[in-house]
Simulated scan of single mutants.
Amino acid sequence: MPFYAFFLSLTICAIMKKLGIFLSLITLLLCVVSCIEDQDFDQYKDLSVVPVFESSILYLESTEDVINNVPPGPFYSQDFSFNAFSEAVFSDRVLDGVITYEIENTTSKPLSLTLEFLNDADEVLDSESFDIDASPSGTLQRDVVYGNTGKSLDIIKNTSKIRVVAVNNGDNTSTSTISPPLVVLKSSGKFSVRVK
C-alpha cells in the first residue's frame, strides 16, 4: 500500500472517529433536550396546604385542702394573658378549629367552672361553663368548634385573655376518699391554618 493511501486511510479513520464522537454528543444532547419540559414555577400560586396545629392551652389543678381553706363560693379566679390567637401569623390564616376541655374532679365537692375569653378591652367574647359533680364524677370532656360549623372565628382571633373562675358548691369540711383529691382542668386547641 502506497504511503499516501495509508496516510489517507488514517486521516479518514481519525475524521470518522471524531465525527462519530461528535454525532454521539449531538444525539445525546437532542435526547436530553427532548426530555425536558418547560417548568412552571408559578405552581406555588395554586398550592393549597392546610396543616393542623395542636397545642395545650391551659392546665390547672387544685387540691381539696385548698378548696376547704376558702369559704364556700369562688375558691379560684385568675386572668391569663393569651395572645397566641391574636398573632397575625395565626389570626390572618386560621380556617377553623376545636378547643377541647377535660375536667376531672376527685374531690368531695360539687364544683362550677367558668372560662371566659376576653378581648383587649376586657369585654367577654365567649364563655364556657361546667357543672361538675362530686367524686366519683368521671372525666367530663367537651369539644367546642369554631369556624364554619361552630362559633365565630372572631372570638378566637380577638382573644387576648382567658379568665377562669372556680366555685365550690359544697361544704368546707368533707374530704374525698380518693387519693389525691384534686380538680384538674385541661384544655387544648386543634386549628387548621392556611400556609399562605
Rank of each mutant, 00 (worst) to 15 (best):
S55L: 06
Y44D: 05
D154Q: 14
I36M: 15
F53D: 03
F130T: 03
F6M: 06
I12P: 06
P110L: 04
Y4K: 09
S34C: 00
P2S: 05
I15D: 02
V195E: 15
D120H: 09
L8P: 05
F85Y: 13
G170M: 05
V195L: 01
A84N: 13
L19H: 09
D133V: 13
M1W: 08
V144Y: 08
V66W: 10
Q39L: 04
L113F: 12
T177L: 11
L58N: 15
I99V: 15
V165N: 13
F191C: 05
T149P: 00
S176F: 08
G73S: 06
S160Y: 06
S86H: 10
Y59I: 07
T114Y: 02
I21E: 13
R93P: 11
E87Y: 08
Y44F: 14
S91M: 06
L153D: 03
V183H: 12
L47V: 04
T100A: 01
I26E: 10
S48N: 15
P74T: 01
V124Q: 08
I132H: 00
T11I: 10
L111E: 09
S188F: 07
T173W: 00
P181G: 07
E64G: 12
S188V: 04
K18V: 04
Q78Y: 15
D154E: 15
K186M: 10
S9L: 04
D40N: 15
F22I: 14
K18S: 12
Y146H: 07
K45Q: 09
N148H: 13
S174M: 03
T114G: 01
L113H: 08
I36W: 05
V94H: 14
G97H: 09
I21H: 10
S187H: 07
V33L: 01
F7L: 05
R194L: 01
